[in-house]
């Protein structure tokens, strides 16, 4: 056998060994970096297609910032469609409030509502990370081989909850082998997948790659919800602490 051939095989073996040796925790940590932007202002659209019929696109501004104790906080204010323009959702950790633009009232939602659909979409509040920055917080992970997702080689990672009250009995995440970004996350309950989230159109934002298109497809309802980020600004001066309180929510006009 030629020396050059041996060298090539040697490189290939080394590459494979390096990949398999990669710790699943490291892979997830790298993938989670996309969501570790701080003081983020963003503007995005949410389009829901149900039974093949596309509903009016919802436009929202979002503000995200961690509290001093690390609690994740976010405020989303809708500007369209007209019915919900001015309606806002405030999430602080696992607590949720809604402000109705039509009546100006603010309501705190029950804790059980975290598994409910967010803004009527296929995303639940739990899908947003159960009050943390990671899809996978609260789950233990194991590598389950490689698969191609949209033509990209990806680690298939199976995540099982470490606590009994998890919203899902299992998650399956596909993280690209090269860029270490989430490509797809599948949500399981009662032995079957019920939703699939695809993360696409990654672009560099600050120091991370951020998915500008996130699409959640319900496997139990004929429904797809797509969030398209129009603008995202990390460390934005528009994100202020005062935004993340029910008092501010009440003051919205």
């Amino acid at each position: 056998m030629k020396k050059s051939t041996l060298l090539i095989i040697g490189f290939l073996v080394a590459g494979v060994a390096s990949t398999t040796a990669q710790n699943v925790g490291d892979i997830l940590a790298a993938a989670d970096e996309a969501f570790e932007l701080s003081d983020v202002y963003s503007r995005s659209t949410l389009t829901i297609t149900r039974n093949g019929r596309e509903q009016a696109t919802q436009v929202m501004e979002s503000f995200q910032s961690d509290a001093a104790d690390g609690t994740v906080r976010s405020l989303s204010v809708f500007s369209a469609p007209p019915r919900v323009a001015g309606t806002a959702y405030l999430m602080i950790g696992n607590d949720l409030w809604i402000r109705f633009a039509s009546t100006g009232r603010v309501r705190k939602m029950s804790s059980s509502a975290r598994t409910n659909a967010a803004a009527g979409s296929d995303f639940s509040y739990a899908d947003m990370g159960d009050g943390s920055r990671s899809f996978t917080a609260g789950y233990s992970a194991r590598l389950d081989g490689m698969e191609s997702i949209r033509g990209v080689d990806a680690h298939r990672i199976v995540l099982t909850p470490t606590q009994g009250d998890a919203a899902y009995e299992r998650l399956v995440a596909w993280v690209s082998a090269e860029e270490l970004i989430y490509l797809r996350v599948q949500y399981w309950t009662d032995g079957a997948p019920i939703k699939v989230m695809d993360l696409e159109d990654y672009r560099r934002v600050g120091n991370v790659h951020y998915p500008f298109v996130v699409r959640m497809r319900s496997l139990t309802n004929d429904s797809v919800s797509e969030i398209v980020t129009q603008e995202i600004v990390p460390a934005s001066p528009r994100v202020e602490d005062r935004l993340f309180s029910s008092t501010y929510l009440r003051s919205l006009r």
Partner: peptide, 15 residues
């Protein structure tokens, strides 16, 4: 009326 309007908001949002 306010309750029904808010429920209407949620129903429209939720399809």
């Amino acid at each position: 009326e306010i309750n029904l309007v808010e429920m209407g908001d949620l129903s429209v949002l939720g399809g």
